[in-house]
Structures are given as C-alpha cells and as structure tokens.
Design a protein around this nucleic acid. Structure first.
Lengths: 180, 180
DNA sequence: GAAAAATACTTTATAACTAAATTATTGATG
DNA sequence: CATCAATAATTTAGTTATAAAGTATTTTTC
C-alpha cells in the first residue's frame, strides 16, 4: 500500500491540468468528465511508448512497428497462422494483412502455405531466416521496453497490468453488444 | 543469458494460450517479461477503444478520429492555436497537421489566420459553424466513452487514471534522454 | 550587423490502414 | 443436390501518418 501512496503523491492530481502538460491532455478543462480524461491519458501513454519503439525500430533495424508486430505474433506460433487469425490477433483488417504479407514474403521473412483443409485459407509462417533475424530484434525490443518502464517498478507495473486487464475485459464485452 | 533460452522464449508453443484471450496478447507465454506484457495490454486496450470510437464517428457523423481529435484540441482554445503547438498536442508531425488543416479549411470547420508576430507561423481556429457542429459531436463522443467505461466504476477509473499519469511522466522523462 | 543556426510550415514520396467490392471456396438449408 | 449464405483472401480507392527535404522567416552568435 505504500507504493500506492507514493504514486498518488508523485502523480498529477486531476486538478493539475494547468501548464506543462504534454500531449492530448494539454488545456483540458477541470470539468471534463472522467471517462474522456481516462481515454485521453491512455492514448497519450500508448502513443508515447509507440513513438519510442517506432523510432528505435527504424534507426536500429530499418523496420517498422506494424512489421515487427506481425512478426512477433507469428513467432509465437512455429506452425504458422492463418491470415484471418493473424488479422484478429493484430486487430487489423484482412486487407492490411494481405499487404504486409506481400512485403514480408518478398523480403524473405515469411512464407505463404496453402491450407489443405480449406482452400480459401492461407497459412503464413516465419522462414528459417526470418526466425533467426527476428530473434535479434525481439531481444532488443524487450530491452527497450524494460529500460523505458523500469522506473515504474515491478509492483506498480503488475498493478497497472491487472487494471488494464479489467479494462480490456469490460471494453471487449461492450464491443460485442455494440450495434452502432 | 543464453541465446538458446531466449530463442525458446520467442518461439514458445501455443499450448499455453489461455482460452479466449483477445488481441495481441493471444498466445503470450507466461515467462514473457512484464514490460512487454504491460505494453501489449496497453496497446490492446487503446486499440479496442479506438476502434469503437472510430466506428461510431464514421457511422454517426461521417467523420474520422484524427479529425475529431484535431477539432477537440482546437475547441479548448477559442483564440486558436499555432499549427506547431497543435502538432505537439496531438503528437503528430507538422506535415500531418498541414494536410488535416487543408481539408478542414476546405470543409469550413477551421480557418487559418496569419500571425503578426511571427510570419512563419499560422494560427488555426474553429469557425463559428465549426464550433457549433463540433459541440454536437463532442457530446456524443463523451457519452460513448461513459457508456463504454461505466462498468469500470469511478474508483477503478480514478486509480487507473492516476497510474497512467505516473506512466506518462516516466515515459516522458525517458523520451527526453533518448538519443536513439 | 552579417553569417549561421534554429524554427514554422509546406511539399514529396511512401507506408499503413480502412471500408467496400470481388473472387473463390465452404457450409447450410430446403 | 442445388441454391443461398457465410467465410478467407484479395483488390481498389481513399485517408492518415511518417521522414526527409525545401522555403521563408526569426533568432543567435561572433
């Protein structure tokens, strides 16, 4: 519980929306509702980290975040994944997967394999060379994140992780009901 | 720190894929390091909410999230903002702001105003009509988020908000040090 | 006060992403 | 078994984003 007390002390209170606030929350009014504020802050954190990772991937490996994410998912499934499944895991459209796959195939990272059981389906998997090259990137990627998030501390990280798990569940449920 | 051990971490079997895990976290192994897991979960939450808001904006107002975000920032500053400042608040490049501004000007949402004090600079501000139309969208936007996040509860929402505040600070500091 | 550096915006080229339509295949229903 | 709906991937057209280079202006430095 001591960690929490420290956190609240260090952290901006909701009223601290005055000067020097970075990102989307700049100039946010006091009476802005909590849901909107939470969403903006979530976006800010996500975008900040994203930009660090993008920048690192570009300068150190001449690649992009979408490609890395694609390869990272594939690397978890040695037998490969259907493109449809991959699009669900990455939360992007099928058309996007088609495009990324074309590129990564052309560059030798992955290969398309026809599916015997369903001829509509294509399985995509890392090539031997793709596996090898990706493992280097993945190690670096992990270290960037560890360095970036280290000051948070293990306890706060775990707590945040759990709370985001709840949020994910809630939003996931709401999305199912959503009929626009 | 054997390369072999890491390789196994990277290419773990899907057997530990807990049932029904959505998004990027699918197939994530238990021994994946905490920083990476936290980042993936943050991305998942952010993307989920983003997709709801995008979809709603499209079906109900025939507009997009980037445009909404742009207008939302402007709406907080009745006197308008310099494009440079806006690009910082929205955390996007200047070129992006130029493009969005061109469109929003063409469609009558905002207007460019030359800055007398600095002739390199342009201030952009909502038109009267832009203000009026945006206020309708903003109300709906707030309700979507309230409905979406309601099950979280006020206490958990506040706590998550504070924790993300700490994260934002930490990442912000680390970004400054970052020399790639 | 002239040269050099920094800044604000724009332009260019390209990547990533989406929604919607299309094609090919599979599954379900009468 | 024939049709109709659902599904997996692709194609197409358009939006959003980036990095890098270019232009015009301001600021700094010597």
């Amino acid at each position: 519980m001591g960690a929490m007390a420290d956190m609240q002390t260090l952290c901006n209170s909701p009223s601290d929306t005055g000067g020097g606030m970075a990102g989307r929350e700049a100039g946010l009014a006091h009476d802005e509702h909590q849901a909107v504020r939470l969403w903006l802050r979530l976006m800010t954190c996500s975008t900040q980290i994203e930009q660090v990772i993008r920048s690192k991937l570009r300068t150190q490996f001449a690649t992009t975040l979408p490609r890395f994410d694609y390869l990272a998912q594939l690397s978890r499934f040695p037998k490969g994944l259907r493109m449809k499944t991959l699009s669900e895991y990455l939360m992007v459209t099928g058309g996007n997967i088609t495009g990324l796959t074309d590129q990564l195939v052309a560059e030798g990272w992955v290969e398309r394999v026809a599916d015997d059981e369903d001829r509509r389906s294509m399985t995509v998997r890392l090539t031997r060379s793709g596996k090898k090259q990706f493992s280097t990137m993945a190690k670096a990627h992990e270290q960037w994140l560890e360095h970036l998030l280290a000051p948070l501390g293990a306890d706060a990280a775990r707590e945040l992780y759990e709370q985001l798990g709840l949020l994910r569940q809630i939003v996931g449920q709401r999305m199912e009901q959503l009929a626009d």
